[in-house]
Computed example of a mutant assay.
Amino acid sequence: MPHVIVEYTDNIAAEARMPELLAAINGVLIAQGGVFPTGGIRSRAIRLTDYRVADGAEDDAFVHVTLKIGSGRPEEVRKKACDELFAAIKDHFAELFARRYLALSMELIEFSEGGTYKHNNIHARFKKA
């Protein structure tokens, strides 16, 4: 963990540069000083084709990011990570935001580790010898 899910409307697909956004998201999480194990970070983008924004009268767009993490991290650690992550998202979309109607949002979901199942050999690659 963490897992990041980026949902975005297909009316911005050509300009969204999702591979770059996912790289930036992972970079922010890795830069948190070991708060999130690098081998557990997963980010993905889901292009939405069925959606409606507001009254549907304009070609409105949105990007919603969900950050899922295991519980137990202090509030200040969670806030720092979320603040930096949302800043990176806003920076990524700044030009598009200036040109069109666009809603950006993010939510943090914490869950109990007792309800998750994991089998991951990627962590070993990042263990310090």
Score class of each variant (00 low, 15 high):
residue 4 V to C: 02
residue 5 I to Q: 05
residue 5 I to S: 01
residue 6 V to S: 00
residue 7 E to Y: 06
residue 7 E to L: 01
residue 8 Y to D: 01
residue 9 T to R: 03
residue 11 N to K: 14
residue 15 E to R: 12
residue 15 E to D: 15
residue 17 R to S: 15
residue 20 E to W: 07
residue 22 L to A: 04
residue 23 A to G: 11
residue 23 A to S: 15
residue 27 G to I: 13
residue 28 V to K: 13
residue 28 V to G: 09
residue 28 V to F: 12
residue 29 L to C: 08
residue 29 L to Y: 14
residue 30 I to M: 02
residue 34 G to M: 01
residue 36 F to C: 00
residue 36 F to T: 02
residue 40 G to C: 05
residue 40 G to R: 09
residue 42 R to K: 15
residue 44 R to I: 07
residue 44 R to C: 12
residue 45 A to K: 00
residue 47 R to K: 03
residue 50 D to A: 10
residue 50 D to S: 09
residue 55 D to V: 03
residue 55 D to S: 10
residue 55 D to L: 03
residue 57 A to P: 07
residue 58 E to S: 12
residue 59 D to V: 01
residue 59 D to E: 13
residue 62 F to T: 08
residue 66 T to N: 07
residue 70 G to D: 04
residue 73 R to M: 06
residue 75 E to M: 01
residue 75 E to D: 04
residue 77 V to N: 05
residue 80 K to L: 02
residue 82 C to T: 10
residue 82 C to M: 12
residue 83 D to A: 01
residue 84 E to G: 04
residue 89 I to L: 13
residue 90 K to H: 13
residue 93 F to K: 00
residue 94 A to S: 14
residue 94 A to C: 08
residue 99 R to Q: 15
residue 102 L to G: 06
residue 102 L to H: 14
residue 106 M to Q: 14
residue 108 L to F: 10
residue 108 L to D: 07
residue 108 L to S: 04
residue 112 S to M: 00
residue 112 S to R: 00
residue 119 H to Y: 14
residue 120 N to F: 06
residue 123 H to M: 12
residue 123 H to V: 14
residue 123 H to S: 10
residue 128 K to C: 00
residue 129 A to P: 15
